[in-house]
Design a protein around this nucleic acid. Structure first.
Length: 353
DNA sequence: TATGCGTGGAG
DNA sequence: TCTCCAAGCAT
């Protein structure tokens, strides 16, 4: 049986729900795509990607029939590229095993690659009206404050408590609205810092606020320091073509293209590093010429400073020893190869200059 | 279960 | 410039 705060929440949602592109869709596929894109990604970032994606792959069948390279290109810039690869593979599974129809219950949804407990609950409740709970970062924060959850965030104890709270207050028949209302509340009012309690419809019920502890919930564990690495990359040109290397399909930026190179070892000179990396990865000897540019980038778990150099092959024909594939590409085609942020910046400079 | 996996916005 | 962290999942 839902608690009293639920009525207040649903009333607030009726008046303040954000008008988001995927909320206008009746198609469960649209809800699914939006939920995958929204994993660890803010709404404002997702909106233009969602619009382009739905225009390019309007149905599950269209997505299933696309090439992985086209799928990765459509995802370029969103990050966490395994989401795109899993969504693509899941679409092919739905075509082959479910007659092209997305399953409706959380358990069956959860069998699709890339669909975990949160996404299964979100899609089942929003797209199919199932009475399924969902727990994302927003809902974690809202419920942690509402019920003053003091167990450390993401600990097994707090996860059990929060999933249980999400489920036991669920209003039957209105789970989709309830889940989205909690998420909108978390994104618009119950923010990580400076929550706007003055406008919160649940302020009277909030147990953390009653003690002035709302900003200390959820309780966050200290994070380990982030390592900083230095890498090199080679812009290798020959006969007007540029050498691109495809990263292994699994792992960081899997399946994306890059300018080959690698990590500088302890005390190693930059050109020495680059010649070694190209020898190991491509089996060729290069001459390292003028510096091309220095690029800095922050990933989730480390920071990178990349030194790019103009290079030429001296001996040996490059072949994909540690890469998934190699390609000599004309400048004008660099746009067609899906790349991560740093390599796209290098490619852009090659196009402009 | 602890860790790897991108990028951008906000403060 | 730096830190935090966002509609998590897979292994």
């Amino acid at each position: 049986m839902p608690a009293e705060f639920v009525n207040r929440l649903l009333d607030w949602y009726l008046q303040h729900a954000r008008a988001l592109p995927w909320r206008g869709h009746v198609d469960p596929y649209a809800v699914w795509v939006s939920e995958i894109m929204l994993q660890q990604t803010q709404v404002e970032t997702v909106i233009p990607y969602f619009e382009r994606w739905m225009a390019r792959f309007p149905t599950i069948a269209a997505l299933a029939a696309a090439s992985q390279q086209d799928v990765l290109s459509a995802w370029e810039g969103l990050g966490y590229y395994s989401r795109a690869r899993n969504l693509h593979r899941a679409a092919q599974m739905v075509m082959a095993e479910q007659s092209g129809k997305l399953p409706q219950d959380p358990q069956a949804l959860g069998k699709l690659p890339g669909v975990g407990r949160y996404t299964a609950g979100a899609v089942a409740s929003i797209a199919f009206g199932a009475d399924a709970p969902a727990l994302d970062g927003n809902i974690r924060r809202v419920l942690s404050r509402l019920f003053d959850v003091t167990e450390p965030a993401r600990s097994p104890a707090s996860e059990r408590r929060l999933w249980s709270l999400a489920a036991e207050n669920l209003p039957p028949g209105r789970a989709g609205d309830y889940n989205q209302a909690l998420m909108d509340l978390g994104a618009m009012l119950c923010t990580p810092r400076n929550p706007d309690c003055a406008h919160c419809p649940l302020a009277d019920f909030c147990q953390a606020r009653a003690q002035g502890m709302q900003e200390q919930r959820p309780v966050v564990a200290p994070k380990p320091p982030i390592p900083h690495i230095t890498v090199t990359a080679a812009v290798i040109q020959r006969d007007g073509l540029i050498l691109l290397s495809q990263r292994p399909i699994d792992g960081l930026l899997g399946g994306m293209w890059e300018f080959p190179g690698g990590k500088v070892e302890d005390g190693e000179d930059l050109p020495v590093c680059l010649r070694r990396e190209i020898r190991e990865e491509l089996g060729a000897e290069i001459a390292v010429g003028e510096p091309f540019g220095v690029y800095r980038h922050a990933y989730t778990h480390f920071r990178v400073t990349l030194h790019a150099f103009c290079c030429e092959v001296v001996t040996g024909e490059p072949r994909p020893i540690e890469a998934a594939d190699l390609r000599w590409a004309p400048r004008s085609q660099l746009t067609n190869f899906p790349m991560g942020k740093i390599d796209r910046m290098i490619a852009k400079r090659l196009l402009d200059g």
